[in-house]
Each structure stands twice: as C-alpha cells, then as structure tokens.
Write a protein that binds this DNA or RNA. Structure first.
Length: 560
DNA sequence: TTGACCACGTA
DNA sequence: CGTACGTGGTCAAC
C-alpha cells in the first residue's frame, strides 16, 4: 500500500482525513490536531495531492511528519517535467490520456453546462477528475472533500504500482521526494538565520550607505559609476547598465570585444584601468541591485530569517530550487548567515558526489572501487598513470562533455580503465541525440523532446549535441539530486528530536541549525544518515559516499 | 505590461 | 569542462 491515510484540504480552510477505518472532516487546525494523534499512535504514511497545498496546516502546526506520499512529486517522477496538477497525475495513474484533460468550465454563474448530475462527485463518468477539483475556486461540500481524500489514496496506490514497474528503487525515490517536498514547505516557513548587523555592514561596504531619499540613492549610484567613467574622459555619459554602450566605451580605449561578459573581459583586466574598474563596478552593482537593502528589507523577516519559496524539484533533472537568493547568495555575503544565540550550524557537503554517483548508476565495479578512497581521483590517477589534476579534468570532461581544451589522452585512458561507466555516459548522450527519454537512477523520467532553453537553433548539429550533453548531464545531476534528498530527509527525521532544523539545501550541501549543546551529536548523526541513505539508495555498499561536516557559527567559517 | 536578451551569482 | 536554476537590468513590442 502506498499510503495509509489521506490528508486533503479545501480552499475554504477545511481539511479531511480519509482512510480505511478513519474519516474526519472539519476546520484545518482541528483536523491537523487529529492527524497529530494518529501519527503519534503508530507509523502512518500520509497521502496528499501536493505538500504546498494539503500539508500546509500540518506544517503550520509544526507536525514532525516523516512518511508521506506526495502525488505531485510521484507524478513528476513518472512523467518528468514540472506540471503536476491532480488532474494530470490522476489521468496518468489511471492510464488516461493526460493531453486530453477535460477543460474547466468558464467561471460563469449562468453556465449550467458545468453542473453534472452528481455534483458532489470528484471523478467524472468518463474517468477523469473534475477539472475544478483542487482549484482555488472549488467549494466542495463535506461529501466531496471526503471523496477527494479517497481519490488521493486511490491515486497514490496506482502511482506506487506504476513506479514499482519502473523499478523497486522508484518507490523509494517517491518516498524521499515526498519527504523533500514536505521539507520544502518547512524551509519556506522557517527561513535561513541571518546576522542582520553583519549583512547590513557587508552591503554597506559594497553598495554604500543606506539611502534616505531617492536623491541620495542617485548620488551613491553616480559615485559608483564615476569610479569607472573617470578612466574614459569624454565618455562620462555612458550608461554602464547598457551592454551596448559599455561595448562602445571599451572600444574607445582600444578594448574590442564581441560582448562584455565577465569571462571575456577578464583577460583584459590589466590592459587598461577601465576594464578593472568596470569589473569591480559589476560586482558592487550586483550586490546593490540584487542583494542590497531592498532585498534585505523584503526577504529577511523581523525574526532575522531570510525566506524564499522552495520547490523539491526543477523541471529538468530534479534538483531543488529556492528563491530570493537562497541558492545563489554571493560568497562575500555568507558571513551574514549566522546561527542565532544558543545555536550552531552543522554544515556538511557531499564530496565528489557526481563521479561517485556515476559509479553507482553505471554499476562499474572498477570505478566503484575508486570511490572507496577518500579522494576518488587518486586511484583514478594512478590507474591511468597521470597526475591527479589530469585525472580530475578527464573525469569531469567525460561526465559533462568537454568541447574545448585537451583532456584527449586521459579520456582514452578512462575508456580503457572504466569501460562500463564510460559506456553508460555514451548511451545517455546517444539517447539524447535520438530524443529518447531517459530515467535517472531513482526512475525520474527525463523527456528529451522538449525545447531546451538557451541553445543553438533547432535542427542543427549544434542543437543535437546540446541535447546529448543535456542528457548525459541530467542522468548524473538528477541521480545526485535524488541521493541528496534521501540524505536530507533522513537527516531531518533522525535529528529533529535534538531540536535540529534544516535551514538550507544547496545541491550537495546541507546547513542544519541546532541547539549548541547538540551540535556534535547532530554532526555524528548526519554522517550516519549518509551511510544509511546511500546504502538504501544504491542497494549495496560498493559505492562509498563521503561528506565533509563541521560545526560552525557562520556558514562562511572554515571547516573543522 | 510583457518577453527577449544580457549579465552573473550559486551548485 | 558541462548542465541547471533565480534575479535584475535595458530595450522593443504591445
């Protein structure tokens, strides 16, 4: 059975619990309290359509739910992409064509065509879910809301059966993806602890003092611009925020470039003082515009927590995403991420996760043997008879598809030494060229018929190659994301009795906020959680995963 | 107001 | 070496 009990909500603030022996319906707060009793009485796996919607009352009540089935996340595993409405998930689970979903009736009071005979039913006579169910305008009566819960249980069970056909591992993936989705709601609620004084000081160093008036803001901007423009007399009216004008400005001092991107300008840093000043300006401008005082005011709450929305998977390979700078905070601002009084951070990142994941997903026993070393590249280098740095570049080139540079000889060595792993990557690349869908290790479908963003024109060889690289990268990146989420879910479940709270997930890095007296025990459990989740995920102990974990006051602090 | 493009931060 | 994401700027089209 995929789940024991469904917990579903209605837009008007009611919730329902539905199971074989239980039915409860009422105000969400009361039903959440009933859920707490049931969850405390014994192990329960909860089903819901989507954590952001249905689990909101449970997260608000700070319930430590650890076992759930998120229909949206399971659907994303099954078919790939990001769309995962209840209607779409239901259709897929029941073998119905999800490209032919019934269209919602127009919200017209006099549109009686939308009134089906059985208006309380959530499933239509043609087998599809009614289109308005679960939508913000839906006003189900109690009978409909209970039916909504029964539909969730049914849908979860069918999804579980479909995933089991993909692989037994996929059912486990659905569990950890579901837990990650619940964690995302908690992350959105809790935010990242910030030292506001340090944040303000750092912003001030880059962006200048906090302006009281618009005139002051203009003056600060003008001063920042002047540091660049003084190097180009006669061009003082150049708008540095306009790349075309910047290109002309650079040409006027003899620096002719196709565009003004940082990596293009970097080689010219010392050829003219204007270039250096411009690169410095860009850095300051980035802080001032994206991570300046408006950002601090908008996203750091009165409790000194930086908040943004979290999602459990993106639309491509399945990594977590976060908004408001949580995933791309410049390293220069990280000293501002600080544990609150009486607390410490346990900070841990997975070492060399992608090559280790390659060893796991490809089943290459020789490459797996290399993962038993703390530094995976050391045994690879010795086997290839090359320097460590060469071995590293070759492995990364193999995984990501190098187009420039020369890893050639070492790549040939990799083909000879680890043919199984290399063949896995080649197959993914070839599938990408043929537009054949792939699956990650945990079974997430990676459709390859979609239009890729920011790539060459369709129909060209360059476009095909871009698709091949995407495919090769996605099976590694996506599988790594699954292991990471399994680890994060395990850490969450095994440390919360100590008051630990995961406050940041960054692809291969975890930041846990914990009462100071429990920090070292949380660090220990975090390492145990990695061993456990890696063993469950890979189904063996052949591939070793390693984490670098330390107890720190600030995110930026040196590792122990 | 919206979308394309540029640019850049993170992994 | 590659891929992915989110954000803010300007500009052109609506």
């Amino acid at each position: 059975m995929a789940a024991d009990l469904a917990f579903v909500t209605a837009p008007d603030g009611r919730a329902a619990i539905v199971g074989a022996d239980v039915t409860a319906i009422g105000p969400a707060e009361a039903i959440a309290a009933r859920a707490a009793e049931l969850d405390g009485a014994g192990p329960v796996r909860w089903a819901w359509w989507a954590a952001t919607v249905d689990a909101a009352p449970l997260v608000a009540a700070r319930l430590p739910i650890s076992r759930c089935w998120d229909i949206a996340e399971a659907h994303r595993l099954l078919v790939g992409g990001w769309d995962a409405t209840p209607q779409s998930a239901w259709a897929t689970a029941h073998g119905l064509d999800r490209t032919r979903l019934p269209v919602p009736a127009r919200g017209d009071l006099f549109d009686f065509s939308s009134m089906e005979p059985q208006d309380t039913a959530v499933v239509r006579s043609d087998g599809y879910l009614r289109p308005d169910a679960g939508a913000a305008q839906w006003r189900p009566d109690d009978t409909s809301l209970v039916a909504w819960g029964q539909a969730a249980l049914d849908c979860a069970a069918r999804q579980s059966a479909l995933l089991a056909e993909v692989s037994p591992r996929s059912v486990g993936a659905a569990h950890s993806e579901s837990a990650a989705a619940y964690l995302c709601v908690e992350l959105t609620r809790d935010g990242l602890p910030i030292d506001r004084a340090v944040a303000t000081r750092l912003i001030g160093e880059w962006a200048g003092p906090r302006p009281d008036t618009e005139a002051q803001a203009r003056e600060t901007r003008a001063q920042r611009d002047a540091l660049v423009l003084r190097h180009a007399p006669g061009h003082e009216h150049t708008d540095l925020r306009n790349p075309l004008q910047v290109k002309d400005l650079l040409a006027s001092v003899g620096v002719v470039v196709p565009n003004t991107r940082k990596w293009v300008l970097e080689p010219f840093r010392d050829t003219h003082p204007l270039v250096k000043a411009l690169l410095e300006w860009r850095k300051a401008e980035r802080i001032a515009t994206t991570y300046g005082y408006p950002w601090l005011d908008a996203h750091v709450g009165p409790d000194d927590r930086l908040r943004g929305g979290w999602t459990a998977c993106d639309g491509a390979a399945g990594r977590m995403t976060a908004q408001n700078g949580l995933h791309n905070l410049p390293t220069g601002l990280r000293p501002a991420v600080a544990a609150h009084p009486g607390h410490l951070f346990v900070r841990a990142d997975l070492g060399q996760i992608e090559p280790r994941v390659l060893a796991a997903v490809s089943g290459d026993e020789t490459f797996a043997a290399a993962t038993r070393a703390d530094d995976l590249y050391a045994p690879v280098a010795s086997r290839l008879g090359v320097e460590r740095s060469v071995a590293k570049v070759a492995v990364l080139a193999a995984m990501y598809g190098q187009r420039s540079g020369a890893a050639g000889e070492a790549l040939k060595g990799l083909e000879r030494a680890y043919p199984v792993a290399m063949a896995y990557l080649d197959r993914a690349y070839a599938a990408g060229l043929r537009r054949e869908p792939l699956r990650t290790f945990g079974g997430r479908l990676i459709p390859l018929d979609a239009i890729l963003a920011d790539v060459p024109v369709e129909g060209t060889a360059a476009y095909d190659a871009a698709r091949g690289r995407f495919a090769r990268n996605a099976v590694i990146q996506g599988s790594a994301a699954e292991l990471f989420k399994a680890w994060a879910a395990t850490v969450r479940a095994t440390t919360r009795d100590l008051g630990a709270q995961i406050v940041l997930c960054l692809h291969d890095e975890l930041l846990v906020h914990v009462p100071a007296e429990h920090a070292h025990e949380v660090r220990r459990r975090l390492m145990v959680a990695l061993d456990d989740s890696a063993r469950r995920w890979t189904g063996s102990t052949q591939v070793r995963f390693v984490a670098d974990a330390s107890v720190v006051e600030r995110w930026s602090d040196a590792k122990d």
